[in-house]
Lab assay of single mutants.
Amino acid sequence: TQSIHIEKSDTAADTYGFSLSSVEEDGIRRLYVNSVKETGLASKKGLKAGDEILEINNRAADALNSSMLKDFLSQPSLGLLVRT
């Protein structure tokens, strides 16, 4: 696993530069990185398409609903625990 911390203040970007997809496997919801913008903040921090997001801001990914995800992604900083 890899811990990634991203700050939007690093650039004038209003997004982190990646998209997520939610997949249900064996009754457990998993979050995967769908795509990463080549010039985006997430790419600079090493996030890659296909990575599994285990935690966002110290909250287990399978416990997050879509409104919580939207809220986290609109925050000025983001902490991710990722399995590559």
Rank of each mutant, 00 (worst) to 15 (best):
residue 17 G to M: 03
residue 37 K to E: 15
residue 29 R to V: 12
residue 56 I to E: 00
residue 34 N to E: 14
residue 4 I to E: 01
residue 72 F to T: 06
residue 75 Q to K: 15
residue 32 Y to T: 05
residue 76 P to D: 15
residue 14 D to Q: 10
residue 36 V to L: 03
residue 64 L to H: 00
residue 5 H to A: 04
residue 34 N to M: 13
residue 38 E to S: 11
residue 13 A to K: 14
residue 75 Q to L: 09
residue 35 S to E: 14
residue 8 K to C: 04
residue 26 D to K: 11
residue 34 N to K: 15
residue 36 V to C: 05
residue 81 L to N: 09
residue 45 K to G: 01
residue 76 P to L: 03
residue 12 A to N: 14
residue 38 E to R: 11
residue 15 T to F: 08
residue 72 F to G: 04
residue 81 L to G: 06
residue 7 E to V: 12
residue 42 A to V: 04
residue 80 L to S: 04
residue 8 K to F: 06
residue 80 L to Q: 05
residue 75 Q to S: 12
residue 57 N to I: 03
residue 49 A to D: 10
residue 31 L to I: 07
residue 68 M to G: 06
residue 7 E to M: 09
residue 66 S to R: 08
residue 78 L to D: 05
residue 22 S to Q: 13
residue 43 S to E: 09
residue 69 L to F: 11
residue 4 I to L: 06
residue 7 E to I: 11
residue 83 R to G: 06
residue 49 A to L: 10
residue 46 G to A: 02
residue 31 L to V: 10
residue 9 S to N: 05
residue 70 K to M: 08
residue 71 D to T: 10
residue 83 R to K: 11
residue 48 K to G: 01
residue 8 K to P: 03
residue 19 S to I: 01
residue 58 N to K: 15
residue 1 T to H: 00
residue 14 D to E: 14
residue 43 S to K: 08
residue 49 A to C: 11
residue 2 Q to Y: 15
residue 74 S to D: 15
residue 14 D to V: 07
residue 50 G to V: 00
residue 50 G to P: 01
residue 3 S to N: 14
residue 60 A to K: 14
residue 48 K to F: 00
residue 23 V to P: 02
residue 29 R to S: 09
residue 54 L to Y: 03
residue 46 G to H: 08
residue 18 F to S: 06
residue 64 L to A: 05
residue 77 S to G: 05
residue 36 V to E: 02
residue 68 M to V: 13
residue 30 R to I: 02
residue 30 R to C: 05
residue 11 T to K: 11
residue 76 P to K: 11
residue 25 E to N: 09
residue 75 Q to C: 09
residue 70 K to G: 10
residue 13 A to E: 15
residue 38 E to H: 10
residue 4 I to R: 01
residue 6 I to K: 00
residue 43 S to A: 15
residue 28 I to W: 06
residue 60 A to T: 08
residue 68 M to R: 05
residue 62 D to Y: 13
residue 58 N to C: 11
residue 24 E to M: 11
residue 73 L to H: 06
residue 65 N to V: 02
residue 81 L to P: 04
residue 77 S to K: 09
residue 74 S to M: 15
residue 50 G to F: 02
residue 63 A to N: 10
residue 33 V to K: 02
residue 34 N to D: 13
residue 28 I to H: 14
residue 12 A to Y: 06
residue 51 D to H: 09
residue 22 S to M: 11
residue 43 S to I: 06
residue 45 K to I: 10
residue 25 E to T: 12
residue 1 T to F: 11
residue 10 D to C: 07
residue 26 D to R: 11
residue 56 I to G: 02
residue 78 L to C: 04
residue 38 E to Q: 13
residue 50 G to L: 01
residue 70 K to N: 09
residue 13 A to Y: 10
residue 27 G to H: 05
residue 12 A to R: 13
residue 39 T to H: 13
residue 74 S to E: 15
residue 75 Q to A: 14
residue 30 R to L: 02
residue 69 L to I: 12
residue 23 V to A: 07
residue 19 S to R: 10
residue 54 L to T: 01
residue 37 K to N: 07
residue 13 A to N: 13
residue 42 A to P: 00
residue 40 G to A: 06
residue 76 P to R: 10
residue 2 Q to C: 09
residue 32 Y to Q: 05
residue 24 E to L: 10
residue 1 T to L: 14
residue 78 L to M: 13
residue 46 G to R: 00
residue 57 N to K: 03
residue 20 L to Q: 15
residue 61 A to E: 03
residue 56 I to M: 12
residue 3 S to G: 05
residue 7 E to D: 09
residue 13 A to W: 03
residue 41 L to H: 07
residue 13 A to M: 07
residue 28 I to E: 08
residue 23 V to K: 12
residue 21 S to G: 06
residue 81 L to Y: 05
residue 43 S to D: 13
residue 66 S to C: 13
residue 26 D to T: 07
residue 17 G to W: 01
residue 54 L to Q: 03
residue 15 T to Y: 08
residue 62 D to T: 12
residue 54 L to P: 01
residue 21 S to T: 14
residue 3 S to E: 15
residue 73 L to Y: 10
residue 77 S to E: 10
residue 5 H to C: 08
residue 9 S to L: 01
residue 53 I to T: 01
residue 4 I to Y: 02
residue 77 S to D: 07
residue 25 E to D: 10
residue 5 H to R: 07
residue 40 G to I: 01
residue 81 L to F: 03
residue 13 A to I: 07
residue 11 T to C: 11
residue 9 S to K: 13
residue 12 A to I: 09
residue 75 Q to H: 06
residue 72 F to N: 12
residue 16 Y to E: 04
residue 5 H to E: 05
residue 40 G to P: 00
residue 67 S to W: 10
residue 62 D to V: 09
residue 77 S to Y: 06
residue 63 A to Y: 06
residue 2 Q to G: 05
residue 63 A to M: 12
residue 63 A to Q: 12
residue 77 S to V: 05
residue 46 G to Q: 07
residue 16 Y to S: 05
residue 24 E to T: 12
residue 11 T to W: 06
residue 74 S to R: 14
residue 17 G to L: 03
residue 52 E to C: 00
residue 31 L to G: 03
residue 3 S to P: 06
residue 49 A to N: 11
residue 47 L to H: 01
residue 42 A to M: 03
residue 67 S to L: 11
residue 75 Q to I: 03
residue 80 L to Y: 00
